[in-house]
Amino acid sequence: MAHTTRVLRSEWTKVRSVRSTLWTLLIAAVVTVGLSALICAFTASDFDSMAESEKAVFDATYVSFAGMSLGQLAMIAFGVLVVSNEYSTGMIRSSLSAVPQRGTFMFCKIFVATALVLVVGMATSFTTFFVGQQLLGDHGTTIGEPNVLRAVIGGGLYMTLIALFTMGVAFVLRSPMLAFGTLMPFFFIISGILGGVSATKKFAHYLPDQAGTMIMTVETGGGGEFGVGDRPYGPWGGLFIMALWVVASLVAGYLVLKKRDA
């Protein structure tokens, strides 16, 4: 236990002492809040011209998280950098010479990074919600409405799980270029294409990001352009599917770390 505490301290020093990594967290927060605010402002001014059917399923909470689709990319960048920088710089050899218990090493690195992401993710989620509702004005909702608090906390959890998933993948792929080159298209293009084509939509619903976003919806009938109304699972079910992806990626990352030469 004392050993784990020491390694946790060491990993905390590592995270806080590299500026470029910390920047990605700030960018994730700023982009999410900024873009969501923009979309909320537009939505508010266009609200009256929306069709009645759209108005019926309008999800004020979900709209205030719209910027997260872009902000999560910065979160992914954080997850990739925090892990694969060890490999690209050769730091991993120093790290594993100091902490040869690879399971402990991985646990502590991920624990520290996750704690940081959770704090930033929650702060981002609450900020983007309140800013968004402010801009939506009359069309907005409040945190006291049913399921809204769940959705806002869910936004923070979603960002945390995305980062966790990314870290597992980065432990498998090691090279930052390879990790970015795999994850960015995956979340930005593949998930979008599969989700957009009706034939593959059913499968796309089980991708980590698409399943995870369910936790941020309140009006289960709607969800606007993301079309979360036709899902075979609810908000927590979606988060659970995402958590399964996270577990799979972390297990794969651990096995690679354990087996392969540093």
Binding site: V18, R19, S95
Partner: peptide, 23 residues
């Protein structure tokens, strides 16, 4: 070691500090 094993963006002090803390 032969190959560089340092993160170029972490100061010399912090590099040694994180190694020291873990042990």
């Amino acid at each position: 070691l032969e190959a560089k094993s340092v993160h170029g963006g972490r100061t010399a002090y912090n590099h040694l500090l994180c190694l020291a803390q873990s042990n």
